[in-house]
Structure formats: structure tokens, C-alpha cells
């Protein structure tokens, strides 16, 4: 049996809102360690990998592995019914047909209970090996979101060039070109404003902005985004949770 209680419903709300436009049907695999999701978008360009570690929950128990096949569009509708500050408890039996969501308002005795029917979802599980990346950058997630949104007005592609002392984002389009250059900086008073670059090899990689537009929906999950890039392989975009992460692996575009 699964019983996982979030101190605030807002965390699961944000997670679901962050991935529901990338993938619709996915298995939430619940184990004693927490809840994991892995899913690939329909165009097979973007892979979503989520871990909500058991430490995120104020109470968590899951004696046996339980798979919840969820339609995220329906899940999102139910989650929106709860208040952000409500306790949210997920409950499921060992071989469940449905998952129950219980919202408890902290300021009153109101308890709202919803159940979502589950689906049999047959998706392949991809093996992702730990890689050494050419470069790892960390920067404020909101800055990354703004840069990507701004440059997407010009082009369908975002080129990322990383050297040891700069990160350059570039977009070239029919109506014009744009670029944003960032330099590493350490902000002692506000560490979340810091920008760091670790470089093994200089990077020059290009990605589809329509996928990055979906990735940056995770911005509210973390002050910082970690981007790990190697030339000619998928980049990893990571929002860290208090325990766990939301990761997006995005396949690059290649010159014709």
C-alpha cells in the first residue's frame, strides 16, 4: 500500500504542471525510496525523469512497489482542486485501479477527497548511464527561462556556446538575430543568483526551442537550473527538489 503525505499540495501541483505538456501518459512508480517517473514525449526528442524522494513527504510508506499509470491531463485537473497550502495525501492499494488524493485545509476541518482512475501504460524504460559532460553550468532558473522565451521570438533553435569564462545563447531567425552572454559570477549574499561554469571541453550545441519552452515550465521548482552538455549528445536540464529532481534530457539538433 502507498500512503504519501505532502506538507503542501503545491509541490506535486508544480511537478505535474511542469511535465504535463511534455508527456501525457506516464507511470508513477512508487517504492520505499519515493516516486519516480520516466517518460519520453511523442516526438521522441525529450525525456522526462522525475524523482520525488521519500524525504520530500512528511509521511511516507510504500511496502511494495506500486505502479500508477496516470493520464497527466486528468491528474492536473484534480490537483488544481486542492489549495496550494493544503496537506495532500496520495493513497493507493497494492494493485490499484485508482489513486486517491486527499486534500486537508490547514485552517479549517475541510477534507476533500478525489480519486483518479488509473491506466495500463506500456512504455519502454530507457537506460541512462551516468556521463561525463563537456560542461556543467548552474544559473538562476528564472534567467534561463527569460533568455529562452526572449530568443524564441526570433528562431526555432537555440545555440548554446560555452567556454571557460562565458555562456552564450544565440538565436538566428529570418527576421533577425539575438544573443545573450553570461559570465560566471558568485553572489555571496544571494547564492541562488550565482552563475557557475565547469568546463572540460568547449561546447557548441543547438536545441529546438519548442522543447526548451516545455522544459522551463519547471522553473518554479528550483531557484537554479543545472545544465549538463556535451557536444553531439543529449543535454541534461535539471531542477533539484529538496530530495530528488526533475530532469529533462533533450536530444540536440545537428547541422544538415
Amino acid at each position: 500500500m502507498l500512503e504519501g503525505k505532502f506538507e503542501e499540495a503545491s509541490l506535486l501541483k508544480k511537478v505535474v504542471e511542469s511535465i504535463k505538456d511534455s508527456v501525457q501518459l506516464c507511470n508513477f512508480v512508487c517504492s520505499e525510496h519515493g516516486i519516480t517517473v520516466q517518460a519520453v514525449d511523442d516526438s521522441r526528442v525529450l525525456l522526462v525523469s522525475l524523482l520525488i524522494g521519500n524525504e520530500v513527504f512528511s509521511d511516507y510508506r510504500c511496502d511494495r512497489n506500486i505502479t500508477l499509470g496516470v493520464d497527466l491531463k486528468s491528474f492536473a485537473k484534480i490537483i488544481r482542486c486542492g489549495g496550494n497550502d493544503d496537506y495532500l495525501t496520495l493513497i493507493a492499494e497494492d494493485s490499484p485501479d485508482s489513486v486517491t488524493l486527499v486534500f486537508e485545509d490547514k485552517n479549517s476541518d475541510r477534507i476533500s477527497e478525489y480519486s483518479l482512475k488509473l491506466m495500463e501504460i506500456d512504455n519502454e524504460f530507457l537506460k541512462i548511464d551516468d556521463m561525463d559532460y563537456d560542461s556543467v553550468i548552474k544559473m538562476p532558473s528564472i534567467d534561463f527561462q527569460k533568455i529562452c522565451r526572449d530568443l524564441s521570438t526570433l528562431s526555432e533553435s537555440l545555440q548554446i556556446l560555452i567556454t571557460k569564462d562565458s555562456i552564450k545563447f544565440m538565436a538566428e531567425g529570418e527576421t533577425g538575430n539575438g544573443s545573450v552572454i553570461l559570465k560566471p559570477r558568485t553572489d555571496i549574499d544571494k547564492p541562488e543568483q550565482s552563475i557557475t561554469v565547469k568546463l572540460n571541453n568547449a561546447v557548441n550545441s543547438t536545441f529546438g526551442l519548442k522543447y526548451i519552452a516545455d522544459i522551463v515550465k519547471g522553473t518554479s521548482l528550483s531557484n537554479q537550473i543545472v545544465i549538463k552538455i556535451s557536444n553531439r549528445t543529449p543535454a541534461l536540464f535539471e531542477y533539484k527538489l529538496q530530495s530528488g529532481y526533475l530532469r529533462f534530457y533533450l536530444a540536440p539538433k545537428f547541422e544538415d
Binding site: 521522441r44 530507457l126 537506460k127 529546438g208 549528445t233 534530457y249 536530444a251 539538433k253
Partner: peptide, 14 residues
Amino acid sequence: KGKQSSIMNFFGTR
């Protein structure tokens, strides 16, 4: 501009 690659070219099924 550029050809979009697939994530499946990089990560194998388990």
C-alpha cells in the same frame, strides 16, 4: 535550421 535528432538514438531500452 539543423536536423532534430531523437533521444532514442542515444539511450537504449533496458
